[in-house]
Write a protein that binds this DNA or RNA. Sequence first.
DNA 1: ACCAGGTATCTTGCATCGCATGGAACCAGG
DNA 2: CCTGGTTCCATGCGATGCAAGATACCTGGT
Lengths: 127, 127
Amino acid sequence: MEPGDSTKQARAAAQLRKGVLEYCVLALMRDRPRYGVELLQALEDSGALATSQGTVYPLLSRLRRDDLVTTTWQESTSGPPRRYYALTESGRAALEEFTRVWPGFRDAVDTFLTTPHPAHPSTGDPA
Amino acid sequence: MEPGDSTKQARAAAQLRKGVLEYCVLALMRDRPRYGVELLQALEDSGALATSQGTVYPLLSRLRRDDLVTTTWQESTSGPPRRYYALTESGRAALEEFTRVWPGFRDAVDTFLTTPHPAHPSTGDPA
DNA sequence: ACCAGGTATCTTGCATCGCATGGAACCAGG
DNA sequence: CCTGGTTCCATGCGATGCAAGATACCTGGT
């Protein structure tokens, strides 16, 4: 890790991932079942959401525990068998729910970051 | 709580807030010192980031502990004195850092949610 | 003087989450 | 047999949002 920007950027980005990662993983399974390392690589390719196995596998366990995904073992031509994760109906519903909520959240953050916040015209004492 | 959407929406939104709240609070202090209840109301007004005192005050304590904000007591005309929070240089730097990181993160999530994810053309076994 | 209500701040305990670390299993090739 | 690559998973830590409760100040009514 370079000591220059990695510290602050990593800190901000790490907190940012919280909660969003779950739904990005669900989104990755939307059109096709995926297996662990594949998800890891897709997140890595996105840049801003790169993470580690220690994050993804417990996350996948939670998704399975909550019946958002089902898994099937499938043999591979280049290594041990892979566990493929596919969305259940609940998983698809959760993904759609998040897709509905996300724009409002995103725009709210954008507004906070870009809009000036002068003295509130109708709140606080005018003194 | 209505059993329909509130549960899922609340769940998704709650996880979403994690990590972002800190920087939205810093953003609210960018142009003017703020006090606790004022921040709470501003977040409430935004809709998507509404939260409670039990979230904001520990957050403000952390910001002060990490020297991202300084505080000054100021008397009020309508109640007990207020503790106003103002950005330090570190706090302003952290806010700017987040402002730099946020667009990339936001766009990455947008891409995951809106882009179809068919079989990867250059990854995975071609079988 | 007394008490109720609104304003404002802060603490405690809980559940959850990202992550570093480490380990285990399977397969191919030397 | 043994090394290396691939894939999976569990454990423990630190940080965070949150509900619930406690404390204190000020104003106004009786």
